[in-house]
Design a protein around this nucleic acid. Structure first.
Length: 792
RNA sequence: GCCCGGGUGGCGUAAUCGGUAGACGCGGCGGUCUUAAACACCGCUGUCCUUCGGGACGUGGGGGUUCAAAUCCCUCCCCGGGCACCA
């Protein structure tokens, strides 16, 4: 329970370690502020300019906050080589981290200042015809001439007022203003104008760019908007030379460098970074001259963990009277129990009892009133599970040495760039700050190598899909009434699933209902039907006076939500079918990693299966005329099920594991009918069915298990291993193809050799007529499964 | 626009290495039981043609490689998810 002080004491303890180790720091930055939630949010928690919880817009605000230096780990976080995680999650994290290779190039200003610029295309420097700074860039003030001052100030104020949402609007026309200042292009000494525009973001790179309009679409649009020079420096093969004054879009593609001094003629490709010859040449040339160097830039920002909220663990820091900051000496720093909630700012900011404290020297000081992002608590909880009441550290090193890392972790893919990224970072930071040192020591004492054990929190991860709402057709309505101004005003509405389309003036499926207005899909149109109070509504099967609210409208397949009325209540299902049936159906009816729409009809098959297992396991079996052959056949089925279920469970293929168990069920029912199976074979097969099913249907299998005379729980039984001799097929089907098409199937021994297989194929009854149609030119034999005869 | 998934019967899905397409289940059809219905049980169920022997077609579309393609290659279309003025 992460809100319990026994837990968050250790969250705070970890924060303190992070602070002492330089991972946690206080910084001033432009951050996401949610006016709705009255708090700042991490970048990861802002989606399309809106907060991920309530979907309300977020604004940008400059504030001093606590950050974690997750960017220190950017490169290591890109390395997934030691873990088995889903491709989409790895791709999302990779994109989120956003590594770009390029160069940092320093532009000198006429004021004497310098502006470093990050670019992935240093080879196009000779085509840089202007510079652009983000509106918030510190040097804008310095650069702006008196003439341009008011224009620039107005633009910056307007940019600040613009929400993140507006700034991101696609296809927005480029805006910007000239500062009046100039920079010197370091490669050719050219004087280029410096502009301010909000398409340049302060948060990425250095907040300033060199603009190469000929070869960057955004710069091109800006150049055309403000009539700036366009100078091409890439010549595509077999094409006319580009003309900067007539180009209609930027050229981004391969070719060779032109008008670029020392790198003229060098090939340029689509490759990134040094893999592109022109980029490599430019970096080398810049480094040699000291005007630039190779550089890597990341899209990911440091993790902002301050929250102006009541809940969450208080950040255990103290502001001292002399302006310095230190860690709170005693942990936990408890949340006050009952602060005054005003609906405004966090109640902690006004709780003087909480705020007032003393520093490590006993001098009056003030507490940090912000709490930590709750993702902080979830970043390390698997470690607390090891020893939830351990008193002297976040976890018991003995347990950590034994268990870590987590073998398998499952959850939704929506956590890809939040929880699953944070927890990887957290583990790496904990490792580097020595939090796992004691556990590593224990491992060495037991002659185990701790190398790499604490690099990643979870070795294997899988994402489950989502069960969506069930599709449902709307009621078929027959509406009588009259047309009035394009609407149909009803006198009566009747539900009739079989009504002919000419059974009334408006007949069709109810698609939507809002209050007393119906959308009815007729054969050729969607009709809006107004149902006045007092109009007659008739719903067969519902007694008494009916009302429009009893009409059922169409439900499309989409996420379950109360407001859409498409939820399925698991408690009701468990009540009706039993927990084992519901669980089994959920595991059987979908590809676990994919999910899909709920189908209420299918659950009967799961229920039937459980009932069959019950009958098989609880009704005495009485063998009749026993044959070794059928006894072995049943045992084979059971042992093959062991193989399939074991393999499928490891692969999270619950649906096919259950299908294999259903096949065994079918064989057991058949065996009981024929009664030719020995009692031993029957009992062995039933026991295997129960043990294999136990993880999926734990209650019913346990009850049957004890009923069959066992004294120990089925869940304590060893996982069965298949006997490969028993599981081996006695005969296999040899497929005989003619020109790749299946023409016959014959039963053969599994160890048939190639010659015998071909001979059997040539002798197969249904092959004879094909043999008369031509000569056998070629034979492909894959005994014991297939023989293909090529005839023409 | 870029990056990931995915597209197979009426439906959910299956097919481990390029080798029997459709396992398992739902639904549907036929039958047994029943006064009847439900339940249960048995059989059939990709599409089309058929002289009932069988034949043709079939895994989003088109093209290719191969004795053989749901599976590999090229190309296009559609659906879901993520990112996106990231220099």
């Amino acid at each position: 329970v992460s809100c319990d002080p026994e837990y968050y004491k250790w969250t705070q303890w970890l924060f303190r370690r992070f602070f002492e180790g330089g991972i946690a720091y206080r910084g001033k930055a432009i951050v996401n502020w949610s006016p709705t939630l009255q708090t700042v949010l991490a970048n990861e928690q802002v989606i399309d300019g809106k907060d991920e919880r309530t979907g309300q817009p977020v604004i940008q605000k400059k504030m001093e906050q606590w950050f974690f230096a997750i960017t220190n780990y950017a490169d290591e976080l890109l390395d997934f080589s030691s873990i088995d995680w889903p491709e989409p999650v790895k791709a999302m994290q990779t994109n989120w981290i956003g590594r770009s290779e390029g160069a940092e190039v320093v532009f000198a200003l006429e004021t004497g200042d310098e502006i470093p610029v990050f670019t992935t295309r240093p080879d196009t420097l000779w085509g840089a015809t202007f510079m652009v700074l983000a509106p918030e860039h510190a040097l804008v003030d310095v650069l702006t001439t008196e003439e341009q001052r008011s224009t620039v100030d107005d633009y910056r104020i307007a940019a600040a007022a613009r929400s993140e949402l507006e700034r991101m609007e696609a296809d927005r026309e480029k805006t910007g203003v000239f500062t009046g200042g100039y920079a010197i292009n370091p490669v050719n000494g050219e004087r280029i104008p410096v502009w301010v525009a909000d398409y340049v973001l302060l948060s990425y790179g250095s907040g300033a760019i060199m603009a190469v309009p000929a070869h960057d679409q955004r710069d091109f649009e800006f150049a055309r908007q403000f009539e700036l020079r366009v100078v091409p420096v890439i010549q595509a093969a077999n094409a006319d030379p580009l003309d900067g004054s007539t180009m209609t879009e930027a050229y981004v593609g391969p070719g060779s460098m032109v008008g670029s001094g020392p790198i003229d003629g060098i090939e340029t490709r689509d490759a990134k970074g040094r893999a592109n010859p022109s980029v490599a040449a430019a970096i080398d040339w810049l480094s040699a001259r000291g005007t630039g160097e190779e550089a890597i830039s990341f899209r990911m920002r440091d993790w902002l963990i301050s929250r102006q909220r009541y809940w969450g663990a208080p950040i255990p820091m103290v502001f001292r009277a002399d302006g310095t900051i230190e860690a709170a000496p005693d942990l936990p720093v408890l949340l006050p129990e009952a602060p005054a909630f005003t609906g405004g700012p966090s109640p902690l900011t006004t709780d003087e009892q909480f705020i007032e404290t003393v520093d490590s020297e006993g001098q009056p000081a003030r507490r940090e009133s912000d709490t930590m992002d709750t993702f902080m608590c979830s970043s390390w909880y698997p470690y607390r599970y090891l020893s939830p009441h351990f008193g002297t550290a976040p976890f018991d090193p003995e347990e950590a040495a034994y268990w870590l890392p987590v073998d398998t972790y499952t959850g939704g893919a929506e956590h890809a760039t939040m929880h699953l990224l944070y927890t990887r970072f957290f583990t790496k930071a904990m490792r580097d700050l020595g939090v796992f040192d004691d556990a590593a020591h224990v491992m060495r004492e037991h002659d185990r190598d701790p190398e790499g054990v604490f690099d990643e929190p979870m070795t294997q991860s899988r994402n489950q899909g989502q069960i969506l709402g069930e599709e449902r057709p709307g009621d078929r309505l027959v509406v009588a009434g009259e047309w009035l101004d394009g609407r149909f005003v009803a006198e009566s509405v009747r539900v009739d699933d079989h009504a002919a389309s000419d059974a009334g003036p408006v007949v069709g499926e109810l698609i939507r209902r809002t209050e007393r207005t119906l959308q009815v899909q007729t054969v050729d149109a969607t009709v809006t039907v107004e149902v006045p109070e007092g109009a007659e509504v008739e719903v067969p099967g519902i007694d008494g006076v009916n009302d429009v609210t009893q009409l059922r409208h169409y439900l499309e397949v989409q996420r379950m939500s109360k407001s859409k009325g498409n939820t399925v209540n698991p408690d009701e299902l468990v009540e009706r079918y039993g927990a084992d049936t519901v669980r089994l159906y959920l595991m059987f009816a979908f590809d676990w990693e994919k999910g899909g729409p709920w189908d209420s009809r299918g659950i009967s098959g799961a229920r039937r299966f459980i009932e069959d297992v019950w009958k098989i396991g609880t009704t005495a079996y009485e063998p009749g005329a026993v044959s070794d052959e059928s006894s072995l056949a049943l045992r084979r089925s059971a042992h093959q099920a062991v193989t399939k279920v074991s393999r499928d469970m490891e692969a999270f293929k619950w649906n096919t594991a259950i299908a294999a168990l259903m096949t065994l069920r079918n064989d057991l029912l058949g065996a009981r009918r024929n009664a030719t199976v020995s009692l031993d074979a029957w009992n062995e097969s039933v026991d295997l069915l129960l043990v294999l099913l136990a993880p999926i249907a734990p209650h019913v299998t346990e009850e049957i298990w004890f009923g069959r005379g066992s004294t120990a729980s089925i869940h304590l039984q060893a996982w069965p291993e298949a006997d490969s001799t028993v599981a081996a097929d006695q005969t296999v089907t040899l497929v005989v193809q003619v020109n790749g098409k299946v023409r016959d199937r014959i039963d053969v021994s599994p160890d048939i050799d190639e010659d015998a297989a071909v001979a059997a194929a040539m002798a197969a009854e249904r092959i004879q007529k094909w043999l008369t149609k031509g000569e056998v030119r070629k034979v492909v034999a894959r005994p014991p499964n297939l023989v293909n005869l090529v005839i023409n």
